[in-house]
Design a binder for these strands. Structure first.
Lengths: 133, 133, 133, 133
DNA sequence: GTGGTCTAGACCACC
DNA sequence: GTGGTCTAGACCACG
């Protein structure tokens, strides 16, 4: 389900956060679903339980999960993070787009890319937590 | 010329790389210009010369600078990095745009933003290494 | 009657204690009333009887209930806990007020708030176990 | 400087957070001061460096500190947290005051207490991180 | 069995 | 030396 990249410079727990956030945002993990337990996910990824726990804590702090001690962690309702997430991603998007303009990419070019990304939706929506880099 | 943010989590040399790269990409530093010496830039930024050295090495590896031993470092000709840079930034841009789609932002919305960013060009082009976040 | 918040970090039995204590303190459960049996309250709240048992034990220890073996639990006479409760809450109140002063809130400001809280009494007194956060 | 209470049920890192937050809020640690290093504070408190680091991370997330990798952690400027802190403490204060009212404490009584707390300022301001419980 | 906390000890990147 | 990450293994409270 999740594949870790040990060559990535970022810490492992951050990779886990990113993958899970994407799964949640894209609907791969529906609201109210029970997440795998800290220990089981740690086993599955062959990392220390502490590492997974740290990822869960981060996701909870970001509003994607809530966790009930002794029972497990659960995905929060969509409306709790949807708006927040859109704001964050939009800010990043503006930043990158500005850089693209500086690098000499024309508005038309980006417009075409935009079109491509939004029309090529079927196959990607199937596998939402996939590789982006 | 360059302002460092000590509260930024990223290492300082990386900030220096980023700022200089932007200066070069956006035309603030023209091709074939001589860069300030490692020592003088280190003094100006009040950082360890090692840090500047590392930044220059990175920029050289990325194709923005070339160093002539005993003479100094110079900005390379534009065609050497332009294409490369565009490729990199475009890949990032696609990645973020995909995330934006997953987060529920519509193509129309991003199209409008695109328009805004490209029409509001005059004032921003003046100060290309500025704040993006 | 009582609504549990499963996303609250505190253990469930503590929530039950808090709600019942408020009900008693605010007069929602009059002295000498018979409390619901452990089992029935557990059913009503859909929790483990152990949890309710623990809450009752805590309330008994705090002087709000007394248990007659084989008969059930009953709310104690008011004078048994009134003074104690006031002392505890007053100590907490002093603590927070001191923090408020340290945080820069003026005496006048808190005086106004005090006034507001005590004049807006009618509607809140109806539903004493309600939301405070 | 900081005294840990091992009988306290709360985790150690949380106690550290609380004490340091109070020191900062009350002016015992001035803005831009360098905090003791993670390791040295861990030695001083006889706890594991991880525990202190967790406390620092929390304080950073709450806006009281910023940390520069390889250089240390520093107290942020006052305006970054002052307002936020006041809001939080005021909400708590309202909550407790409401409970005090329910417990039968009169507005006059709390008014007197308020007066006492605010007039007895001299001695307490000297030792702002002191015992509150 | 679940999450939460803590310790001890290790390694890395940065400055 | 500084902070940051990770592992291994332990204990506790909760349900």
């Amino acid at each position: 389900m999740i594949l870790l990249d040990y060559r990535d410079k970022r810490p492992i727990y951050e990779q886990v956060v990113e993958k899970l956030e994407r799964l949640i945002v894209s609907g791969g993990l529906e609201p109210l679903t029970k997440m795998p337990s800290v220990r089981s996910l740690a086993m599955e990824l062959s990392v220390n339980p502490n590492t997974v726990q740290r990822a869960y804590a981060q996701l909870e702090q970001d509003g994607y999960l809530y966790t009930v001690s002794g029972r497990g962690s659960f995905v929060t309702a969509e409306n709790e993070w949807r708006e927040n997430k859109q704001g964050k991603v939009l800010r990043e998007w503006r930043n990158i787009t500005l850089q693209a303009r500086e690098a000499g990419l024309s508005q038309e070019r980006l417009g075409e890319e935009l079109q491509k990304i939004y029309t090529a939706c079927e196959e990607n929506l199937q596998e939402p937590g996939g590789q982006y880099d």
